[in-house]
Nucleic acid binder design. Structure first.
Length: 816
RNA sequence: GCCCGGGUGGCGGAACUGGUAGACGCUACGGACUUAAAAUCCGUUGUCCGCAAGGACGUGCGAGUUCGAGUCUCGCCCCGGGCACCA
């Protein structure tokens, strides 16, 4: 072994050992406590970026720590291999998406291996392979049979020049990103999965998921957006059919001054046939963008459609408007306008000169001015006849009861959550297993004809999907009646692949079923780590799929991920590092220059995992320097001479201090890695211990024994973070075993005991002195010592002491 | 616009339950070693006043609660993530 630190050689040797010993290949062992430790799998974009290194290192640290705790750990890896970048590369470079994707996987797999992650590579998954996607095709056909999927018309962004459907990301300021042509909205039939059928369960289970961050649970709760309200029917002049609106605030019913319907609403459509101006407005609304952010920030426009609704209580006529801000997809596509008590209604009324009426007043009797803005809090009802004086709940029930009794409405629960549209008009995805027959309509592909294989040898131009031009793909036989029929050419949203891969890792080689009994051993995932940007969509879809798989008898787990760690973004120049923005830093050069351990150490030390990390090239050298110091300290210690094992009862003060520091470090690092996931402070604690070791003057074999215990502690506690160097140093210290097979060090409580402790003294909350007291000193003794301090004396002087607060073990505060 | 985070020295960050603000590291500066440089080692490093002892100020801004607030409450400002076809 080299006396100077040579990362490349050290890391090669460690990797060879892990591979030869098959350290990370695991089977199912019912006698052992399993720990399934997973990261969100990467998209094979070409090369790893810092965000990958961050998340994979976090997960590897947890996996290695749990292994040293005696757990039977599974850490698998795979590829989320379908997606748009492969199509973009194909257009740009003329390489087929499949070829580009497989090349990227080859390169990135080598990068992952070079970083020393403890993956069970025998379980590797690649979602673009038929043996993987056949099972999601199969699940889709089962969902079809169970009524969990359906087809309906839905709008897409259409680029009239490129003759292709655009993703929201490809629409820049309303124009196609390549053609720069104004994007049009087109309605086409698309497949949907009924995630709303699980809305209540997805919501309710959030309360039983203590291992998830509150922020993510809150985001999902808000996204599902369960709201209790009333659907009210309003008679419309000259119409047979009543106008129905959903409201969560029936208590404000007397504050209605207008009604607004969506541009696609039947009343608007009808009005448009009679009124050219309305027709023009409705037509203009079809140009709007589909993204919610765009809808919410755009100017709220509207116009009256010339007819009125009748207020069910007052009998007054209420003008009906058409508004671009009313969504056909939420509730009934119509809203009642209560400008006094809703922000958006207020702005709309203010802009269009509609009356604003106050019908709610603050319960505490304070005054509000409805002319300056809406009052949206719950309060006491006023100006509303029979319901005057009621609070929110009373008024809600009064209106709901009355409406239900009169057959003019009913209590209803609405969700913001919409069903999941899974159709994509793209080539590089898993084919949706449907055959269209003129007689039998949409027929799912039978199980014995699965998978529907995506042809990989295609010419990809970017003008629509090449599948449409391939008769050998499109032409099919109706599975039901045998007549000539056409295959669906749309493919699945790539979120479908990532909604069940975590379960497939348990039985990646099973070719007779989606999942087998091994799923029961490993699922649910104990620790799931990934980017905060997936807090809603991916994590909600995955939870949905898990529940579907459970209900189909494929799994018994209610939820897929027991503990969730959402790591913050790696930012550069203030923006998220992403292939889309092209501001990635290639970690490869750093690995080649400093070694994998330095990169791993720097990433874990730079900030706590949940926080955003602003990338900077500085600091990597510091990590490298620390590893060299660490290496040299162990080498020097070993060369220095023999050590005798620590005899706890015959230590001098200096030895006891170092040993206390050692065991304090074990306690600190165990808590930081095992409970808090604050790897940065764990590393800081290990650095402090190494600093203490370097300051410690070694004269005797007993001294060396205490140092040895300290150094072995540093090696073991850092081994999950910088596994290669620790592997080598463990051997340098004479061990035949490897850290990866060692047990995590245990705190010796007796080593932590201390006779004298320091306490700070405050006067009126300001630090004025420090005193050293016996650790078991009583309050009187501490108080007396505090007041005896000469600087404390200066501030207390002849002033009256009002009280003295003593926080045991911490401080004394004298209030004068 | 709505939902979820965040804001602490020159920089990344620490302070876990309301109790020493700035651990650990980087940078910078000074010193040692060297013919020299690199590397390494030692020291200093929130701002201001002071020879020192020590003091005043200081956690985005403004108020409040408390013996005591980076931490809790209210109101603002700024930055990041998500908003359903980026993954």
């Amino acid at each position: 072994m080299d006396a100077s630190y040579n990362p490349e050689a050290v890391e090669q040797e460690a990797r060879d050992y892990w591979e030869a010993e098959r350290c990370f290949e695991v089977g199912e062992d019912a006698g052992k406590d399993k720990f399934y430790c997973l990261t969100m799998f990467p998209y094979p974009s070409g090369q790893l970026h810092m965000g990958h290194v961050r998340v994979f290192t976090i997960n590897d640290v947890i996996a290695r720590y749990q292994r040293m705790q005696g757990k039977h750990v599974l850490q698998p890896m795979g590829w989320d291999a379908f997606g748009m970048p492969a199509e973009n590369a194909a257009i740009k470079r003329g390489v087929p998406p499949a070829k580009w994707t497989y090349q990227n996987i080859e390169y990135m797999r080598d990068q992952l291996k070079r970083l020393g992650y403890g993956y069970d590579w025998t379980r590797e998954l690649t979602t673009c392979k038929p043996e993987y996607y056949r099972w999601e095709q199969w699940l889709f056909t089962r969902m079809f049979e169970q009524g969990l999927v359906y087809r309906k018309n839905s709008v897409v962004n259409w680029d009239p020049v490129d003759q292709t459907v655009l993703a929201n990301e490809q629409v820049i300021d309303g124009r196609g990103w390549r053609s720069d042509a104004p994007v049009e909205l087109r309605e086409i039939p698309q497949w949907f999965m009924k995630i709303t059928a699980y809305a209540d369960e997805l919501l309710d289970f959030l309360d039983r998921m203590p291992g998830w961050p509150d922020s993510v649970k809150t985001m999902q709760r808000n996204w599902i957006g369960r709201s209790e309200g009333v659907e009210l029917m309003f008679d419309v002049e000259g119409e047979d059919e009543a106008l129905s609106v959903f409201t969560t605030r029936p208590d404000t019913i007397m504050g209605i001054t207008y009604m607004a319907v969506a541009p696609e609403h039947a009343l608007a459509t009808k009005a448009a046939t009679a009124d050219a101006e309305v027709a023009a407005f409705v037509e203009k609304c079809k140009q709007m963008q589909t993204a919610e952010a765009a809808l919410e920030t755009m100017e709220k426009k509207g116009m009256p459609i010339g007819i009125s609704a009748i207020h069910p209580l007052s009998g007054e006529r209420i003008p009906i408007w058409v508004g671009n801000f009313v969504l056909m997809s939420y509730g009934t596509g119509a809203v009642m306008g209560v400008p006094g008590h809703d922000h958006r209604d207020w702005e709309f009324a203010d802009k269009h000169g509609l009356p604003i009426v106050q019908v709610i007043t603050p319960s505490d009797g304070s005054e509000i001015d409805i002319g300056k803005g809406a009052y949206v809090e719950y309060g006491r009802v006023i100006n509303s006849g029979d319901i005057d004086g009621m609070d929110y709940r009373q008024a809600f029930d009064a209106i709901a009861d009355k409406s239900e009794a009169e057959g003019r409405g009913q209590r209803k629960i609405n969700y913001r959550l919409r069903d999941w549209g899974v159709s994509r008009q793209r080539y590089w995805g898993a084919p949706i297993p449907i055959i269209y027959c003129a007689d039998c309509d949409a027929v799912p592909v039978p199980e014995d004809q699965l998978p529907v294989i995506l042809p990989e040898d295609v010419e990809f131009t970017g003008y629509g999907s090449p599948l449409k031009e391939m008769p050998e793909f499109v032409d099919a036989e109706c599975p039901r009646c045998g007549k000539p029929a056409q295959r669906e050419t749309d493919t699945f949203d790539t979120f479908v692949e990532s909604s069940w891969y975590f379960a497939r890792y348990a039985s990646p080689d099973c070719d007779s079923a989606m999942l087998d009994e091994r799923e029961g051993y490993w699922m649910p995932v104990d620790q799931y780590t990934g980017g905060i940007e997936h807090a809603i969509l991916h994590l909600l879809y995955a939870r949905f799929f898990q529940k579907v798989m459970r209900d189909f008898g494929l799994s018994s787990a209610d939820e897929p991920f027991t503990n969730l760690l959402t790591q913050g973004m790696v930012l550069k120049d203030g923006a998220k590092m992403s292939k889309a923005k092209g501001n990635t830093v290639d970690p490869q050069q750093l690995i080649e220059k400093y070694g994998a351990d330095t990169v791993r150490l720097f990433m874990m030390f730079a900030s706590p995992p949940e926080q955003a990390l602003e990338w900077s090239d500085e600091g990597v050298q510091g990590a490298s320097r620390f590893l060299r110091r660490f290496w040299n300290a162990v080498q020097a210690h070993v060369a220095d001479g023999d050590a005798v094992p620590v005899d706890k009862d015959s230590l001098n003060d200096e030895q006891r201090d170092l040993r206390r520091k050692t065991h304090q470090t074990i306690a600190k690092v165990s808590d930081d890695i095992g409970r808090r996931y604050t790897f940065n402070t764990a590393i800081a604690a290990a650095m402090e211990l190494l600093n203490a070791i370097n300051r410690f003057e070694v004269e005797t074999p007993e001294d060396r024994g205490v140092v040895r215990e300290a150094l072995e502690t540093v090696v073991l506690v850092l081994s999950p973070i910088v596994p290669h160097i620790c592997h080598a140093l463990w051997h340098v210290m004479g061990h035949a075993s490897a850290p990866v097979d060692e047990s995590w060090p245990v705190v010796d409580q007796s080593a932590l005991q201390q006779d004298m402790i320091e306490i700070i003294v405050q006067v009126n909350g300001k630090l004025r002195g420090r005193i050293s007291v016996a650790s078991d000193a009583d309050k009187e003794a501490i108080s007396a010592l505090a007041l005896a301090d000469k600087n404390v004396q200066r501030f207390v002087a002849d002033k009256q002491i009002r009280k003295t607060i003593i926080v045991p073990g911490r401080l004394v505060n004298v209030v004068v």
